[in-house]
């Protein structure tokens, strides 16, 4: 099966559960005391989709969203973006539109957008109606699911929906790719003359 590496970036206000969603997806665990994001450079997980393997390279904000200081590099080359809000905090839904705007401004033109209404296990303190969020997501042609990182609800489904939206390979061939720098290994001698 062909392996495709897909960069996914996370957006959304501080404290909505961006890291928890990825943590649940990648490690299938949940830590209620997870720190405001520090310490995760990026996280990966591979899932099969039709006759391909999708390897998600998920970039966490490293806390740079707190004062709106995400660098353009963060969005660069992303296939998909997951914008997260907290269903128990209306203001995190209201700022969603700013994140979408930010993404339109800095993100690649054909990026797949997914909206996740997190903490759906806290239904009794809900402030955002599912229908309102769904309507908004539909209006911008985004994937929409309500998730609970804590109870493992809809986390895998979120990524399955993203996989479905990703155009098949060769569709968006970009200009020449570069390479990653590596340490010089003494065993691998360059061809001698």
């Amino acid at each position: 099966m062909a392996l495709r590496e897909l960069k996914v970036c996370l957006l959304g206000d501080t404290g909505v559960g961006k890291s928890s969603i990825v943590w649940r997806f990648v490690e299938d665990s949940f830590d209620p005391n997870i720190n405001p994001t520090i310490g995760a450079s990026f996280m990966t997980k591979t899932v099969p989709h039709q006759n391909e393997l999708h390897k998600f390279l998920i970039w966490d904000t490293a806390g740079q969203e707190r004062f709106r200081a995400l660098a353009p590099m963060y969005y660069r080359g992303s296939t998909a973006a997951i914008i997260v809000y907290d269903i128990t905090k209306e203001e995190t839904f209201l700022t969603l539109k700013n994140w979408v705007k930010e993404l339109r401004q800095h993100g690649p033109p054909n990026i797949v957008v997914a909206i996740a209404g997190n903490k759906c296990d806290l239904n009794d303190v809900r402030e955002v109606l599912e229908k309102d969020a769904k309507d908004y997501a539909d209006s911008i042609n985004a994937v929409f699911v309500e998730t609970s990182a804590k109870n493992a609800i809809n986390i895998n489904e979120l990524f399955i929906e993203i996989s479905k939206r990703i155009p098949s390979a060769n569709a968006g061939a970009t200009s020449g790719k570069g390479f990653k720098l590596r340490r010089q290994s003494s065993e691998v001698e360059r061809r001698c003359c």
Partner: peptide, 21 residues
Amino acid sequence: LGELPQGFARLSAIYGGTYML
């Protein structure tokens, strides 16, 4: 070249650095 400072800023942020523009 502007990617270089951004990359090191991300490193700093991952290790707890606070960023404000």
